[in-house]
């Protein structure tokens, strides 16, 4: 009982940034102690934990197999109450990612919950690569080609990926 009460008391409004930092430190530790295969992330600057870079390996059996994609994470100061902003840094050709790398994923928007963390975001994104939601595409061309013309899709993806 007293544990929880003291910890909440000891966290006045001004300490929110430290709370975020603490939480992110913990997440980093978890990521490092138990890395999930195919995904990883790391802070850009050890002194500012609010900006991270993540890496996703394209899942096997998809167009993205053998490729790696970089993402940038930007955490708000009230994280984890608010979702981080996640953008693909590697040029992407995917129905739910626009040309600027912005991602349409419900858990990064309205379905966000504080129980999600970096690792779950990365895993969700990894699965999104294999199973796009073609009903609400950001990239119409990609959505169209995804099912209709795999060859063209692969070509355009390859082209995009070379732009890096």
């Amino acid at each position: 009982m007293s544990v929880s009460s003291t910890s909440t008391n000891a966290a006045p409004a001004g300490a929110s940034v430290t709370n975020v930092t603490k939480r992110l430190q913990k997440e980093l530790m978890q990521l490092m102690m138990s890395p999930s295969p195919g995904v990883s992330a790391f802070p850009d600057d050890p002194s500012n934990l609010l900006k991270w870079t993540g890496t996703i390996a394209g899942p096997d059996g998809t167009y993205f197999e053998g490729k790696t994609f970089k993402l940038s994470f930007s955490f708000p100061s009230d994280y984890p109450l608010q979702p981080p902003t996640v953008v693909f840094k590697t040029p992407m050709f995917h129905p739910n990612v626009d040309m600027a790398g912005r991602i349409c994923l419900d858990i990064l928007k309205d379905k966000w919950s504080a129980v999600y963390n970096i690792s779950s975001i990365l895993l969700s994104l990894q699965s999104l690569l294999g199973e796009p939601n073609n009903k609400s595409p950001l990239n119409g061309q990609a959505a169209q080609l995804w099912d209709e013309d795999p060859k063209e899709y692969r070509r355009l993806l390859e082209k995009r990926h070379q732009e890096e």
């Binding site: 790391f42 050890p46 890496t55 970089k70």
Partner: peptide, 24 residues
């Protein structure tokens, strides 16, 4: 444990020198 961190930072942040790795 350090290797986990090192691989994490090298994967995500690109190539790094030993000094920078050590500092981080």
């Amino acid at each position: 444990m350090a290797w986990n961190y090192i691989s994490g930072m090298l994967t995500n942040q690109g190539p790094m020198t030993t000094d920078r790795i050590f500092n981080t």
